[in-house]
Measured scan of single mutants.
Amino acid sequence: KLPPGWEKRMSRSSGRVYYFNHITNASQWERPSGNSSSG
């Protein structure tokens, strides 16, 4: 399961899957890690 705020999306241009955070408006190709504590 993804960390809070993150969701899986697909890029229309490349067709690749990326991850988008609707809370911080951040996007990245790598899967966000939800196990590590923020610090």
Rank of each mutant, 00 (worst) to 15 (best):
K1H: 13
K1F: 12
L2P: 15
L2F: 03
L2S: 02
L2A: 02
L2K: 14
P3R: 02
P3C: 07
P3D: 04
P3T: 02
P4K: 07
P4H: 10
P4T: 08
P4G: 06
G5A: 04
W6Y: 02
W6H: 00
E7S: 09
E7T: 10
E7K: 05
E7G: 04
E7W: 05
K8I: 14
K8R: 14
K8L: 14
K8F: 06
R9V: 05
R9P: 00
R9Q: 03
R9E: 01
R9N: 01
M10H: 09
M10S: 07
S11K: 05
S11G: 06
R12M: 13
R12C: 15
R12K: 13
R12S: 11
R12Q: 12
S13W: 08
S13Y: 12
S13G: 11
S13E: 10
S14W: 06
S14Y: 07
S14G: 09
S14A: 07
S14N: 10
G15H: 06
G15K: 07
G15A: 05
G15T: 03
R16S: 04
R16G: 03
V17L: 06
Y18G: 00
Y18M: 01
Y19I: 00
Y19S: 00
Y19F: 07
Y19G: 00
Y19T: 00
Y19M: 00
Y19D: 00
F20R: 03
F20T: 03
F20V: 05
N21Y: 04
H22I: 15
H22C: 15
H22W: 14
H22F: 14
H22L: 14
H22G: 05
I23Q: 08
I23Y: 11
T24G: 02
T24Y: 04
T24R: 03
T24M: 04
N25K: 15
N25D: 04
N25L: 13
N25F: 10
N25I: 04
N25Y: 09
N25M: 14
A26H: 14
A26R: 14
A26M: 14
A26Q: 15
S27M: 15
S27I: 15
Q28N: 03
Q28P: 00
Q28E: 03
Q28L: 03
W29R: 05
W29V: 05
E30K: 06
E30C: 12
E30A: 08
E30M: 07
E30H: 10
E30S: 06
R31N: 07
R31I: 10
R31W: 10
R31T: 07
R31P: 10
R31S: 07
P32H: 02
P32A: 01
P32V: 01
P32I: 01
P32Y: 01
S33E: 12
S33P: 08
S33M: 12
S33D: 13
G34D: 13
G34R: 09
G34T: 11
G34I: 13
G34N: 12
N35D: 13
N35R: 09
S36V: 13
S36A: 13
S36K: 10
S36Q: 11
S37V: 12
S37L: 12
S37C: 11
S37M: 11
S37D: 12
S38E: 12
S38T: 12
S38K: 09
G39K: 09
G39F: 08
G39A: 13
